[in-house]
Simulated assay, not measured.
Amino acid sequence: MMANQSSKIVTVFGGSGFLGRHVVRALAKRGYRVRIAVRRPELAGFMQPQGGVGQIFPVQANLRHDWSIERAIEGADTVVNLVGILYETSKQSFESVHKDGAEAIAKATAKAGLKNLVQISAIGADLESDSDYARTKAEGEKAVQAAVPEAVIVRPSLLIGPDDDFFNKFAEMSRFSPALPLIGGGETKFQPAFVGDVAEVIARAVDGELEAGQTYELGGPEEKSFKELLEIMLSETQRKRLLLPMPFGIAKALAWWTEMLPSPVLTCDQVTLLKTDNVVSDAAKSAGRTFEGLGIKAQSVEAVVGSYLWSYRPAGQYEANRAR
């Protein structure tokens, strides 16, 4: 039975997103009062049934306006920043969200006299990276640590689970495309992490169980290549598709074209990211700042994706019966 934390308030920036929904649920189960800070609070009302009456409440916050951030944090005991983007748009850049937004939240947290801040970054965050995504994630970490040295940084690998941006995207693509691209030959390694497991670590950080001022890297129990992940997806969706090796140069040219779409399938920056493996570092392993170090048995890819990829089968959940 979780300890009752009903007197404590946690402000979760980006709490209505893919990871945020799981984080809010984990915090609510622990008894925290959760304040979901988002740009459009009227669209986050669906989160409230995950807790008791009045336990979860959305508030408006815009990372461009310090006063709205400070208002969202006022009276809170802990702050969690989950805000991030996978590609840039005309209104949002990696710099403004990952660096400037994280810095604004950290400074407001410090101004409120709080030391309890959990910042979500990503494995591969590197100030010297050629990827704008990875570089700005690292710049955000640096800004957060400068404002709140006690902040806990959490770096997940590829997040998977219902509504994820990886398996769902390629499963949808396989519905109409006879071939799927193996960018760079499909050799890039990932350590996919179940979103619920990552949310549990964040909740433990809010509980104060993680070491202040440290960085944790979260990857699933197995390293999988990009090709292996697509093969798992095709097996679960019961589709046969050609996996076509695509050199990075050609992939970048294709990405340049798709970036003109409202919701690009692939961006040039994502192609750059795929040139580097996305796995837990040896330093994090030796320091025990991983799932294993925290005593959490992370779920495997195969144990997770079957619960939602069935919907992409030619006959959905009835595919098995149709084959008889």
Rank of each mutant, 00 (worst) to 15 (best):
S7D: 12
V10Y: 04
V12P: 12
G15L: 00
K29A: 15
R30W: 02
V34C: 03
R35D: 05
I36N: 13
Q48D: 02
G52N: 07
G54N: 11
F57T: 13
S68P: 05
I69S: 05
A72W: 03
E74S: 13
G75W: 01
N81H: 10
L82Q: 05
L86M: 09
Y87N: 10
S93M: 05
K99T: 14
A106H: 00
K107I: 14
L117K: 03
G124K: 03
A125G: 07
D126Y: 00
E128R: 12
S129A: 13
S129H: 04
D132Q: 14
Y133V: 01
R135I: 11
K137E: 10
E139W: 05
K142M: 11
A143R: 04
A146S: 15
I153E: 02
R155F: 00
P162S: 14
E172L: 10
R175K: 15
A179K: 04
L180V: 07
L182E: 03
I183T: 13
G184Y: 06
Q191C: 03
P192W: 00
A193M: 01
D197F: 08
D197Y: 09
V198N: 09
V201F: 01
V201H: 03
E211A: 15
A212W: 02
E217N: 05
L218R: 01
G219D: 04
G220H: 02
F226P: 02
I232M: 14
I232D: 13
M233N: 10
E236W: 11
Q238A: 12
K240H: 11
L243Y: 06
M246C: 15
M246Y: 07
W256Q: 09
W257M: 15
P262I: 13
V265K: 10
T272L: 12
T276V: 12
N278Y: 00
V279H: 00
V280S: 00
K285N: 04
A287K: 10
T290S: 05
F291V: 02
F291K: 00
E302C: 07
E302K: 11
L309G: 07
L309E: 08
S311D: 08
Y312P: 01
E319P: 10
A320R: 07
A323G: 07
